[in-house]
Design a protein around this nucleic acid. Structure first.
Lengths: 207, 207, 207, 207
DNA sequence: CGCTAACCGAGACGGTACGTCAAGTCTTAAC
DNA sequence: GTTAAGACTTGACGTACCGTCTCGGTTAGCG
């Protein structure tokens, strides 16, 4: 998800002034702070530069666009990546995955980052592409998890996995974006339970 | 959903020049056209004014904000409101509702309007409020439909209706926004079927 | 100086509603009030209409332009026209005229009107013309007064009257516009005295 | 008279792109050209930007207001500052000063700039302040010149210098603004002569 | 007494320019 | 040769008034 500037250390350097790590951190911190204070919409590169006490061009050097910057701030906030669950049963996998997922909803920074990026993807076709790619990697985890369930015979092999994956992510994103109710990790279990019964009892056939 | 200026005829008018309906329509048409051509993100009031052959101030007179304008263009595009279904069975109601819902996905104007408005709601807290209100009216239709099902004994009375409603709208919005796959009205049936089994076989208990 | 709407009664009328004198007065009063409060620069027809509780079109019906309106407000403020003095001596005439002139400087409404109109004449070539015509009528009074003095032999017949008239009005307007010092009627006498000696002792020859 | 941005070089600069002198000059040239073509009244920042081929924001960066800009264009047009005359006699000083002053009337750019600034000062109270300050510096030259004459005994020590200074500048400005006759440097002599006799023969007493 | 002219209010309309903001690019000076 | 500073072009923002216009309604005088 991240255009991690840390990577830039890998390329050979012949000399010159070194990157100021302090400046780097202060940019990310300013981004996170402004994200929380005013939301993604009123977050501006100009504002981040001012807050971080950094030149605008310094930001542009390391992050091409606003979503890139927010993505990095998001990644910086949580170094712990969501691991792909493999408990041996669909119920276990699903519950574990959804509980982890719903936990994001309790972190305002991550919430604001995610909703902001989703918004950005709607407005900027250029960003929609990498965003969809990231979405796909997340979906793959669930698709794999469901594939394992079919091989174990827990759900019918005719199950439409694309559709099933939508049922996993959809309600989460919808609540995140529509904001009609808070996202409680406790809800994850109910979500998982309904899904399990829906998928087990009935195979949604491929069209 | 609409801040329909048509309504303003209701207020008492003692004098003053009447609204130019031609100008009004050309604004809405220009909005729709530009929405399709460039998307919500690059839609500007200035651009609409130019395209419509109308003064910028005329637009600002009738529509306070960009989302207001797009909302109205959206409403204008589809005078056919989604009726509240009442077929007598949950299966019928749900299938009817979801089929209608998924049909939106086949109309680019409505799709772009909806995703644009959802994006706007993430970016502009002031707009989030009326948007959430509209979301609520849509949710109410589903909640009513589910309530009838509980009184008929089709699903357990302990069913968490908020959660159940999320399962109806979530996957639709998720697919609309993430854009990983097209929205086919045919998918509505599968969605309805999975939901029916999930809700019937298992009661997601109230927390 | 005034584009007096009273004149409009002269044209033949076969019928129709009469002018609303109340509206008329309230416009002039609003103009005077706003002139004093915010100055000529921020005086707007729109503002006057609002303040007077009158439609903008009503103002435009009776006064073509902003300076027209202000001129009328100026005239309305002082019905007593400055009379052409004829005391029999240059000293008397000059002192009388200048004392009357300087008295304008003590009336804020008239002061603001005059300076505003002078400003308008610099900015709007179309208005400069009638304004210069009004200036000429004022100058003529002084020129006549000086002509009588030459026939009486009080000043040399070779005196350049245009130049002499400038010496009468110039310092008044300069002080009015530059605002470096208040205009005191008492200063009129000193002004007259210096002028008298300057003109008597020396004839400024025609070039 | 000028809010010269050249002065800003004095503040410490640690880096940053330098001001583009070409852009600077083209703005001033465009201002002068438009001033001559359409006058101060219809001079707009937007128009200057377009004519100069420069962004509006660039103009706003260096000149806060329209009068600031015109002032600078005026100063740029005439690098030759009017020197403070000191010939040893009042007659010499006055004639020299007035001849220089009246020469301004032959330069349309300077004339339009001056009348425009005077107009602006009437309309914009915020601008009136710095304008009056500039007026004061010009007056000081004359006041000094007259003070020297009193010490030399050329005019009575009781002469009201404020009033006398008005007699120097007033007719010039009046003719400039009222436009009833052109300003000819030849008239300066006549003006000086009348003034000399007026001041010598009669002391306008201090009040 | 009704016709008709002219008034008045309200306010919509196409315009123009305002001054602000942020975007993203580019140039220079310092380290 | 990276970094900070910041000048630059671009383009849209939302606002304020402009002067014109179209209404609905009122108020006279004339015939």
């Amino acid at each position: 998800m991240s255009t991690n500037p840390e990577k830039s250390h890998n390329r050979p350097r012949t000399g010159g002034r070194h990157r100021n790590e302090d400046a780097h951190h202060s940019v990310l911190e300013a981004t996170t702070a402004l994200l929380l204070e005013n939301g993604y919409g009123s977050l501006t590169i100009e504002g981040v530069a001012k807050r971080a006490g950094v030149a605008k061009s310094t930001i542009y050097r390391w992050w091409k666009t606003k979503p890139d910057l927010v993505m990095d701030a998001y990644a910086h906030e949580t170094a712990t990546r969501v691991p792909e669950p493999d408990t041996g049963t669909l119920a276990g996998d699903l519950t574990t995955f959804l509980t982890d997922l719903y936990r994001i909803g309790t972190d305002p920074t991550r919430t604001k980052a995610l909703t902001g990026l989703m918004a950005e993807a709607q407005l900027d076709p250029a960003f929609a592409q990498p965003f969809r790619a990231w979405i796909a990697t997340r979906r793959d985890i669930v698709t794999n998890l469901l594939t394992r369930a079919t091989t174990r015979g827990e759900i019918p092999p005719t199950t439409d996995l694309t559709h099933a994956t939508d049922l996993v992510f959809g309600p989460f994103w919808y609540r995140l974006l529509a904001g009609h109710a808070p996202l409680d990790p406790a809800d994850a279990e109910a979500h998982a339970a309904t899904l399990l019964h829906g998928l087990k009892a009935h195979s949604t056939e491929q069209h």
